[in-house]
Every structure is written in structure tokens, then in C-alpha cells.
Design a protein around this nucleic acid. Structure first.
Lengths: 181, 181
DNA sequence: GATTTGATGTACCACATGGTTCATTTAAAT
DNA sequence: ATTTAAATGAACCATGTGGTACATCAAATC
């Protein structure tokens, strides 16, 4: 049985993800997506079997990428919370992160609109960040709070374009005294 | 010149807003919207001149509603921050608020996607909450932080359905010591 | 009661979407 | 070289969208 050229599916997924990131959303038509990745709607459906599967593959790839980027050990062990949070906030609000940020928010939207897969994505991100922050913050309550604050700050930043309020709020929240027993 | 029945446009806007709230988004087709409000796409376009104008009218109406609901004076003057924030959080996470919450988040999405009008809506909400919180929190920095935390908490609540982490984070953030000069 | 003018329904249009059909090409296995 | 199964393109389809054309209806003014 002849097995002709192999389409290098993995690379196609990468390019699709790149297109999604550039668009800041998964909601881009197959035609536009195909054009952007140098293929055709016909072929995308051929390879992936349908839009749903394509999106699933792209989400999984994004999860992998983010997991690598925020792996425990991205920061020195002894760093202060201030340093870590400042670095995270800078990285997050860097202009080249805009696309990923928008895409992640788009997935959040899908999550709160009921998408099972998007909800799983959100939870995975949650775990990732909890694991990261737990190494620099005193307790789970602090992590929990910083995480929610971070998300709110991202939201505000995306809308206003101003990263300063978010930075200020994050720094301020670190001033919370430790729970004394 | 005969001026036949007046269509009570105001009430139509109300019903449209109600439909948007029920849908948790502005992105509902004119056909479905019309059916929901007991009219027809034909008539909605006739009355409003197009979808854009309809959305604009609905947003403005929503602004009015929220402005009334969170008017300064919704809470006793002397209330502690804990009491006020707890009440606000309860109100926000009450099941009957789900639709408005989703709709407001949908508008946030439009805002971060570049919609001028949605951005204005966001800023108006911002002002509203700042004015409210400024009466119970020590300084602007505190208000700024609580506001961002609140938004992040709402996001998490919408996705997970669990209001507890948000409540905990809000309470925790009130433990920040006053800036001492 | 005739006229005028808005209210309304039905059918329609142009366009975009995800997906399919069908026919053709292409590369590997024999 | 022939066979075989995948790769690919072009046209097509069903569906849903905002919006329009046209014809009809109904109410207020004269």
C-alpha cells in the first residue's frame, strides 16, 4: 500500500496556531486561516477532519508551548515575589505577547460560554500558574489572590493598553501581611 | 400629516436588552432577537435603522440600569469595606445576575477587540465602581487594586461557577495595611 | 370617505461559513 | 510501467447573516 508524501502535520498545526495567535482568536474562517498558512480550506478539512479537530489540535499545541514557557524553574529559586511578579507582568504586557494574550482570553470566553475543551485549557493554565507562584508566595491563599488579580489586570490592560495600573496593583498586593496564627 | 400609532420604542429597547441579557451576549441574530421580543427582523431594522444602532441603544440602556443600581448611596455611609465588598460580591454572583455578568464580559471582549463603544462602556463602568468604592476604601490605590481583583474574580467565577475563591481573595485583599507616610 | 403615511409580512438578495463532490494529479510500491 | 492511494483544486451546497424591495394594511387627517 503506497503511503505517499507525509504532510508534516505537526508543522501545519504550528502554522495554524501562529495564525490564531496573530488573529488573537480561534474564530477565524477556514478560508482565511488556510490562506494564512499557505494551504486551502479543502486541505485543512482533509487533514484534520473538520474545524473542531483543528481547533483542538491548536489548543493542545498552545498548552504545550505555555507549559514549556512557564515551567517551574523559569525563575531562580530564591527570587523575591516582587522580582518574579514584575518579570511575569513585563513578559505578559510585552507587545509581542499581545496575540497570545488575546487568544488565551478568547479561550476564557469560550470557557465561560460553556466550552468543555476551553474550560480544560483554563484549568490547565490555572495549575501551571499555581505551581509557579507557589514557589515564591507564602501560602495558597496568596497564590489564589495574586492569580485572580493578575487576570483582572490583564483584562484591564487589554482594554486600556496601559500596563501601569496592573503593575501597581500587583506590587501593592504583595504588601499583605502573613497570616499570623 | 397622519402620525399613526407610536411604537413605544423605549419599551422595545428594554425588551431587546432583556433578550441580550438572557443570551449573555450582544451577538444574537436579528431573527432570534426579534422572535424573542415578539417582533420581526424587518421591524427591528425599521425602527432602529440597523443592527449597530440597536446595539448602541441597548448598551446605553444597560449603562443607565447599572448606573442606577450602583449609584452612590446604595450602601450605608459608615459600612466597613468588608460589608460592602461582601454585599457586592454576593449580588454579583447571585444566579439572577448571570446574564448581566455575561453580557458585561461580552462587552469587555468587544472593548479589547477594539470596539470604540464597548471601550466607552467599560470606562463608564470603571468610573461607577471607583466612585462607589472610594467611599469605603482608604485610597485610590486600594480602589484600583480591588477593582482589578474583582474583575479577575468575576472571570474565574464565570468559568468555574465557584464564587468562593473570589470571595476569599476579596476579603484577603482588605488586610493590606494602610500606606504609612 | 379619500388620502396620506407609517406598520408590517413575504420574499428576496448578497455574502460568508463549514463542509462535500467530483474529477485530476502525483508519488510511491510493485 | 502499472497500480494504488493519497493530494489537491474547482465548483458546489446548505445554512445563517444583515439588509432590502415590494406589496399590503391600517390609522389618522382632511
Amino acid at each position: 500500500m503506497p503511503h505517499p508524501r507525509k504532510p508534516a502535520l505537526d508543522e501545519l498545526v504550528d502554522r495554524c496556531l501562529a495564525a490564531f495567535v496573530q488573529a488573537g482568536t480561534l474564530d477565524i474562517s477556514l478560508d482565511r486561516l488556510a490562506h494564512k498558512v499557505g494551504s486551502s480550506k479543502r486541505m485543512l478539512i482533509h487533514y484534520f477532519g473538520g474545524r473542531e479537530n483543528l481547533e483542538e489540535k491548536a489548543m493542545t499545541r498552545l498548552e504545550e508551548r505555555l507549559r514549556a514557557q512557564f515551567a517551574p524553574g523559569s525563575f531562580p529559586q530564591g527570587a523575591t515575589p516582587e522580582v518574579v511578579l514584575t518579570a511575569l507582568w513585563s513578559r505578559t504586557t510585552a507587545s509581542q505577547s499581545k496575540g497570545v494574550l488575546l487568544l488565551v482570553m478568547d479561550l476564557s470566553r469560550r470557557a465561560w460560554n460553556g466550552s468543555k475543551r476551553a474550560k480544560a485549557f483554563y484549568e490547565e493554565q490555572q495549575r501551571l500558574w499555581v505551581d509557579l507562584l507557589l514557589k515564591y508566595l507564602p501560602d495558597r491563599a496568596a497564590v489564589e489572590e495574586v492569580l485572580q488579580l493578575f487576570q483582572g489586570a490583564v483584562l484591564a490592560y487589554l482594554i486600556t493598553g496601559d500596563p501601569e495600573p496592573g503593575r501597581r496593583a500587583l506590587m501593592r498586593t504583595l504588601a499583605i501581611p502573613l497570616k499570623t496564627p
